[in-house]
Design a protein around this nucleic acid. Structure first.
Lengths: 147, 147
DNA sequence: GATGAACGTTTACATATGTAATCGTAAAAG
DNA sequence: CTTTTACGATTACATATGTAAACGTTCATC
């Protein structure tokens, strides 16, 4: 299971990253103020998370007097994509459509979202296959039983 | 960040669960044989994971001689749903549509998948809003800047 | 210039997680 | 009936993660 995946951040670190992404850069104070109430984290906790993010190169820093300005070194989109792929990695390819359908069902969407999705679905409709190839190791999904 | 979420399983445990879900029930031997090559896990490792899954009540057992038959106590769908929600928990509601679109774009879909998705999109089209309400804490997303 | 506030760094510690060996017992084989 | 084998349980241990206090240094303030 060796999580070799680079740029992988933890849940708590992700929350910190969101603050930085929101304004493109931020000081520790800004992060502390944004998250203190949401999670009851002490300032020291945020500092630890910031330090770890710098160490794993998810953030870079520039100096401003004695303090740092933190800059994201990975994008939010990339982080979401990594996490999504990680989720899909546990699901049989054949179940991905249903999974996305479930996600969609729960989501609140805008007209623009719907338009975008319709466009993608249209493209997918052309490329659609009869049966999505199962990518599972034998025994790890039921596809071989209903083949 | 106290992960109070019940039924939460780890990545390695998930792989074990998939084997059990695939045949509704399985012995440790079946799990071991299914995963030994995919992950180079030693039999002892699988046993540990099975034990932990029983302890956290994701699996139940029935006896067969001196061995156990493991039965899932949570469904694969529920597990996927939990993990999906966990992922969405880090994303501004306003970005969910785009995120799903990205997922969709990468997926291989069947005709049946497309039909299902079209149906859901149609429903969503009726319910669509002009702007999805941002659910973020101030400072954790850029929505307030482009409000 | 002395002091206290603010910052990043270091250290701390409990629990989670990945990974596995060892052990006691029960079943199977000889 | 004894010996080997297979099973689950116990113990082990390194790294990851959440959470935070303590520490040393740098700025700003008196």
């Amino acid at each position: 299971m060796q999580t070799t995946e680079k740029n992988k951040i933890t849940e708590a670190e992700w929350e910190v990253m969101r603050v930085i992404w929101a304004s493109n850069e931020a000081t520790s104070q800004q992060v502390i103020q944004a998250l203190e109430h949401k999670y009851q984290w002490k300032p020291a906790t945020i500092k630890t998370l910031l330090g770890r993010l710098v160490k794993k190169e998810s953030l870079t820093t520039s100096s401003l007097g004695n303090k740092f300005i933190y800059h994201p070194n990975i994008t939010e989109e990339e982080t979401i994509r990594l996490a999504s792929n990680n989720l899909l990695a546990h699901i049989c390819h054949r179940k991905v459509g249903q999974t996305i359908a479930d996600l969609l069902d729960q989501a609140t969407l805008s007209h623009a979202d719907v338009a975008l999705l319709e466009q993608i679905i249209a493209k997918k409709k052309v490329e659609a296959v009869d049966k999505v190839p199962c990518n599972c190791v034998p025994g790890q999904c039921a596809c071989h039983l209903t083949k």
